[in-house]
Nucleic acid binder design. Structure first.
Lengths: 230, 230
DNA sequence: TCAAAAGTGTTCGGTGTACACCCATGT
DNA sequence: ACATGGGTGTACACCGAACACTTTTGA
């Protein structure tokens, strides 16, 4: 049986970053091709000899010069046959998190520009990238409540108030400071250091860190991370 | 920029059915090609002009003659470059549920045979289909606890004891009958009919039915289906 | 001494959990 | 009358939600 398929395979990455009390998304503007002068997600075609995972990581490095903290497959977009006007492209979208938006974006080989955009101030996006982004945002929101991925958006040592804020902003709701703190600490996977954050107004705040080893150990014992506030 | 890709796109479906207190999976044996005489998931290559969704439904109809109750994208398998020995194939796997395993399986065009296998008595499977199946089983287990998909595995009208059993078997744990019943009924999305199930031993059992409209209405009001027992 | 943010405890109501008894039928 | 599965009710413990005060710094 001969199979004749004229379908291309691409990977796209939705990269989230958090800084200054805002949730940001990484977008690029390409030098060449159909995407010239248009903001789009990091992505590109899969090479014959590389895995999907390798393809995403390569594009992240080539187009933005970054290595991410967290990466998982999101969804495969292939039901809109004309999502790319040139020819049929099926895109396997990935969901990524990086800590600190301050990392240097090196618009490298293919990308003319790479920038962080607050999720509420997006430019017009190429193709169906806005739809992909929306799916990614929903995944982020739901996953935040049952997996400790929030820490991948913060630096290794962070302020409790930053963690609180991150949850409030991403979940788009108010959370009681005291209950939030109590809940997180009750898990025993966040530890205080003896360092303090930068001087600001008010009482100095301790830096905390996420103990991943402890978390993995608890996981095996049946522990469930779960943060669901009314 | 010219893109030369030698990658084929396939869809595969993991179809679950429930009957006689067992969780079953639908497998087929193909007439032709590399899969001759091997049990495999329903699936095949995507045609140029059809959506992914259409492709899965077509294969389900062609190879097993069924229409499913529930269908969602599961995961895209493309990290093992040699998962198919002929050439590189990326498979977009779908997760499907049907009510009652008694529906007639018509091994149609391509399939020589189509059969239900209890999930604990599987034959050797083609390619990485066992891995795909494992992923599907995990999705089923987790989704069962936060979405009312159990009803898609039962007939329109069902016995409470069947629902209880379904949960016990799929989640592989014991559940207190009384608490389970109380919980489900408290949602207000399952209603009793005035019919009774087939005569068996003991007191006759009422038939119940799932009120999908009510569920959708409650969903909009922020209702969360959630069944998690210790 | 005042403002501003960090850090801590208590009360209350709801819900998950464990558990025991009655009901309706066929034999 | 008895075996078999269907159907109901209660008591307790724990946890999430609401909420107020003290602490530590800089100005």
């Amino acid at each position: 049986m001969e199979i004749v398929q004229n379908i291309k395979i691409a990977v796209d990455a939705i990269v989230f970053g958090y800084s200054e009390n805002k949730l940001n998304v990484l977008l690029i503007k390409q030098k060449f091709g159909i995407l010239k002068n248009q903001w789009a997600l990091v992505g590109g075609f899969v090479k014959n000899e590389e895995t999907l995972f390798e393809a995403v990581n390569r594009e992240l490095l080539e187009e933005a010069g970054i290595k991410v903290n967290y990466l998982e497959q999101l969804f495969t977009f292939g039901d809109d046959i004309n999502r790319d006007p040139r020819f049929r492209v099926i895109s396997i979208a990935y969901f990524a998190l990086v800590n600190s938006t301050k990392l240097i974006l090196t618009a490298d080989t293919d990308a003319e520009d790479a920038k962080w955009f607050p999720i509420n101030e997006l430019p017009t996006l190429a193709f169906d990238h806005l739809e992909i982004l929306q799916t990614a945002k929903e995944r982020l929101q739901s996953k935040l409540t049952y997996q400790p991925i929030g820490f991948d958006l913060l630096s290794k040592e962070f302020l409790f108030s930053d963690l609180e804020n991150l949850y409030c902003i991403i979940l788009e709701k108010e959370i009681d400071r005291r209950n939030f703190r109590k809940k997180i600490l009750s898990f025993g996977i966040v530890e205080e250091t003896n360092k303090y954050g930068l001087k600001t107004k008010g009482r100095p705040a301790k830096l905390y860190k996420f103990n991943k080893l402890k978390y993995n150990k608890l996981l095996k014992e049946g522990f469930l991370f779960d943060i669901n506030f009314a």
